[in-house]
Design a binder for these strands. Sequence first.
DNA 1: TCTGGGGTCCTAGGACCC
DNA 2: TCTGGGGTCCTAGGACCC
Length: 426
Amino acid sequence: MPKIFALVDCNNFYVSCERVFNPKLENKPVVVLSNNDGCVVARSNEIKAMGIPMAGPYFKIKDQLDKVGAAVFSSNYSLYGDMSNRVMNILQTFCQNMEVYSIDEAFLDVSFLNKKDLEEFGRDLVIKIKQYTGIPVCIGFGETKTLAKLANEIAKKDGKNLNQFKGAFSICNQEAKEKYFSEIAVKDIWGIGRMYNKKLQELNVQTVADLISKSDGWIRSNLKLTGLKTIQELRGISCINLDDVNEAKKSIISSRSFGKEVVEYKHLQEAVASFASRVGQKLRKNKTVAGLITVYIMNNRFKEGKAFLSGSICLPTPSNYTPDLIKSSLEILDKIFVKGLKYKKAAVMVTAIQPENSIALNLFENTIQTTHKKAIIMKTFDTINKRFGSNTIQTGRESFDKTWKLKSEHRSRQFSTNWEELLEVV
DNA sequence: TCTGGGGTCCTAGGACCC
DNA sequence: TCTGGGGTCCTAGGACCC
């Protein structure tokens, strides 16, 4: 049976979350900044209309924002995460077969619907989500994920001018394809990024229609295998399946840019230890262990003389035990650290991830008893931090003053996940 | 002064094997 | 002077996504 996918995408998600709890922001220009108040990561329509780009550095556009009295927020991930869960829970009641693709997007397998009913189903969903959560969404329908993405783009653009589709659009019929394929630029296709767009411009390929008329061989040689999959998807041949959400991640990373440059080894150790600890938490949450750990340290990439240092260690036994992860991370740091550099960012990454119940014990280092003991310690650790707030307890290597800590000067309150902060509003 | 963080997949090239 | 040809595995780096 041919498939039909829906892509549900929250409009200007972080901005919309801020507006739910602060309705005065409605119809006003609003931006949300990345960690460290570095870049713009969400823009209201008013900001988009000003031509302010996504991911542009804040310091370059600050004056422009001040001039129009824009509201500026630091990222408030506990708020956005909680709002995201609410939206996803509602979607789940309408469609069990679903993939949460990102914090603000989900693919649904709606092959059970009749093609002519798609937009009506979509509009109903748009209204319900807005009613129950306050978040506006757009929905696109297509025979493949890439087409659903494209349909979603069309619904979004339409919302800014005509609003004839009322948030839901299907590209499952031939007329719609003919009309829009010749209008939409290749850069708006899911899977065509900056570099591929540049290349296509050079080859004078402008629209979706131009692109799908090319031969497979042409696409393969210019856009590689990934590009070929994208084009097949545009032709209606599904190559990208709905992902199993429960599938284990292949890598987990914790990294931060520092609020100011770090020169002291001691501070770098603290940072790396906290990133390792964070990685441990994520592994345990997924009930997984990691076999390989990698540490990166780097200086400011926008200044002269780029330095990027990294090293890896295979753990003797795959682990999610924080002290093990910290010990290995610090060993790596010791090997790669170069004195005299001004460090701007560090990261801890783990790979070779597997389910925790599948570990083959290393005869020399572990017995079932010590593994069990470690698990109990970590469980206690996680429970306390969950109950009383993250970082209530930390390992001794992580320090409590965190001189390298990032900036977050405009964060809104954690209205939906923190009682104390909600009460400040009243 | 100030430029995010967390992922995925693919490819090219090197090391090593017979 | 000649300098194969097939594999595998690993890693770094590039491209993409949100």
